[in-house]
Nucleic acid binder design. Structure first.
Length: 561
DNA sequence: GCCGTTTTCGGCCCGACTGTTTTCAGTCG
């Protein structure tokens, strides 16, 4: 509809309806056939969308969609994923140059045919070529939450089978990588043959790629995530978990180590070179133990020092999800969140937290209705009273996610910031500047005594946008110096900052917070991905400030102010 | 296309940046 230049508000209605259906607790499809529940009772669904839904339920498509697909090839939608091209450009490229695919687009850029079109030039051609490279780089990968949900769905499904005793995910998902290329599932139990059959019959299997006696591969859902299921005897479960968890580099190093010890390691077990007698296979602990190593948490298995640490009994005691006592970055309806302070607080209390910080946007984010100074001061006062009344059963920190302006100043004046308990400084615009300027900009925020945390420090959006350039070492050093913490943003689209940067910052003495940046109560559950990311950065409980009990966190924040 | 009413039309988050303009359209967040 955007490419066809239809009315923007109408387009938004479709988007709103889609999001209403997604977040509706009941099945909207079930409502269609129901007497007492009407789909039009769902806010965002009116008469028009209701009839679309009926048509959709009846035949899997609807007239308007069919007509648009006659006019524009479905592959044109892929072009919208190229940064810098919007619907107007995609329409122009299609109508003038018949460009319908990313390959077409790349060719046209290289032949400088884009510059012939109105409002397009060589700068755009260069930008599009860079975007295509970034897009290809991330194609075929999936965000961790999508992989996790798929793993959970399929595990539950497989465990319903008699003869299946245990289903576990391995691979990069188990290592907690921020994106995964495919999903590895391992199952044990007597019913291997039927299990594989059952697996390939899941209603959301899009394509069966392979199916043998021990292993089957499918593409799952329309997204096409490849899932491999291996069935194996319980006796080699540990060896298989070790082998299929990887990483490849970690496993190569382990196998080299095994050879030096006169052993050989494969997915069936660790065995003696001469004679082939198996010395360990049932558990990972035994395998690592026989190799003279402490068991290594999957998140560390990247061959980046973990084997040496395991040898010297110097592995860190990694942070765990249960260590988290609060969430220090969340939005409400005051800006671009979907729930109220009270609703967020209730969910957080149910999650067992002691405290949360409400951190809505500041006024520079006009699109989100960001808070100005007057609203900030009123909000701080409101939270102070809420805490005094104690009615919410959880401590609230009054906070803000305040924009860091291009010149390094904060979007709100210091007296407004000082009225709050907790200030996150974040970059949301002007990301396309040189490294030196961005570094100075961030240093400006770090030197502001009201700033407690730098939010999503690199600004990356996974599979969509690279980090903006800046001198991370200098920023980490400044944070350590000024006592400003770095955020591990647990949103699956960000996971920012991540493993290697965390280790670098920790080495400089930086402390961290792990926060979900929740815009909806259900996002509070993303904390697990933040914790896994922190573990990949070798963080312990002592590194993470929102593992502190409330009184200690309060005094830390007070000292900073 | 939805919603709410000042109830059957009119409003619907909008500012900044970029690259192309010769006064601004397109994209992004």
């Amino acid at each position: 509809m955007e490419i066809a230049a239809e009315d923007g508000f109408r387009i938004r209605s479709y988007r709103n309806a889609a999001s209403a259906i997604e977040s509706c607790p009941e099945s909207v499809m079930a409502m269609l056939g129901s007497e007492d529940r009407k789909v039009t009772d769902v806010p965002g669904i009116g008469k028009g969308i209701a009839s679309v839904l009926e048509e959709l339920a009846k035949r899997g498509s609807f007239d308007k969609r069919d007509k648009l697909l006659e006019k524009y090839p479905p592959t044109a939608l892929e072009l919208l994923k190229i940064q810098g091209l919007g619907p107007k450009s995609v329409a122009l490229l299609f109508e003038h140059l018949r460009i319908t695919s990313v390959d077409d687009l790349e060719r046209a850029c290289k032949e400088h045919r884009l510059a012939e079109l109105p409002r397009m030039g060589t700068k755009l051609e260069e930008k599009v070529l860079r975007s295509i490279a970034a897009y290809r780089n991330s194609a075929g990968r999936f965000l961790i939450n999508f992989a996790q949900q798929t793993a959970d769905t399929l595990s539950t499904y497989l465990l319903e089978m008699p003869g299946v005793e245990r289903v576990q995910f391995a691979g990069s998902l188990r290592r907690g990588k921020e994106t995964v290329g495919d999903l590895d599932l391992l199952a044990t139990g007597p019913g291997a043959e039927q299990t594989l059959e059952h697996f390939t019959k899941h209603p959301r299997v899009h394509e069966v790629l392979a199916r043998g006696g021990n292993k089957a591969s499918i593409r799952f859902g329309l997204e096409g995530l490849q899932v491999d299921l291996r069935t194996l005897p319980a006796a080699s479960y540990g060896a298989a978990m070790q082998y299929f968890t990887g990483s490849k580099e970690h496993n190569v190093a382990l196998r080299q180590r095994a050879l030096k010890l006169g052993l050989t390691l494969n997915e069936y077990g660790l065995s003696k070179l001469d004679g082939g007698q198996i010395v360990a296979s049932e558990t990972e602990q035994e395998i690592y133990g026989q190799l003279g190593l402490a068991w290594i948490p999957p998140e560390l298995r990247e061959n980046s020092g973990e084997i040496e640490a395991a040898e010297n009994n110097a592995l860190p005691t990694l942070l765990e999800l249960g260590d988290m006592r609060g969430d220090l970055h969340m939005h409400t309806r005051e800006t671009d969140g979907r729930a109220t302070l009270e609703e967020m607080a209730e969910l957080a209390r149910e999650a067992g937290y002691e405290y949360i910080a409400i951190t809505d946007h500041s006024k520079a984010l006009a699109m989100a209705n960001g808070l100005d100074e007057a609203r900030v001061v009123a909000f701080a006062e409101r939270v102070r009273r809420l805490n005094e009344d104690g009615g919410l059963g959880i401590h609230i920190f009054s906070g803000i996610e305040c924009d860091i302006m291009r010149d390094g100043r904060m979007d709100l004046d210091d007296s407004a910031l000082a009225s709050l308990d907790f200030v996150i400084g974040s970059v949301h615009n002007n990301m396309n500047i040189e490294s030196a300027e961005m570094t100075e900009r961030l240093l400006g925020a770090i030197s502001n005594p009201n700033v407690d945390v730098i939010g999503h420090p690199t600004g990356r959006i996974l599979m969509h946008r690279e980090s903006y350039p800046f001198d991370f070492e200098r920023i980490a050093a400044a944070c350590a110096d000024k006592g400003v913490w770095l955020e591990v943003n647990a949103s699956p689209e960000r996971l920012d900052i991540h493993g290697p940067l965390l280790r670098a910052a920790k080495a400089r003495g930086v402390k961290f917070v792990i926060s979900t940046d929740a815009h909806h109560p259900k996002h509070l559950g993303n904390m697990r991905y933040g914790v896994v990311t922190a573990r990949r950065g070798w963080l312990t409980k002592a590194d993470v400030m929102n593992t502190l009990p409330l009184p200690e966190l309060k005094s830390r924040l007070a000292r900073r102010a």
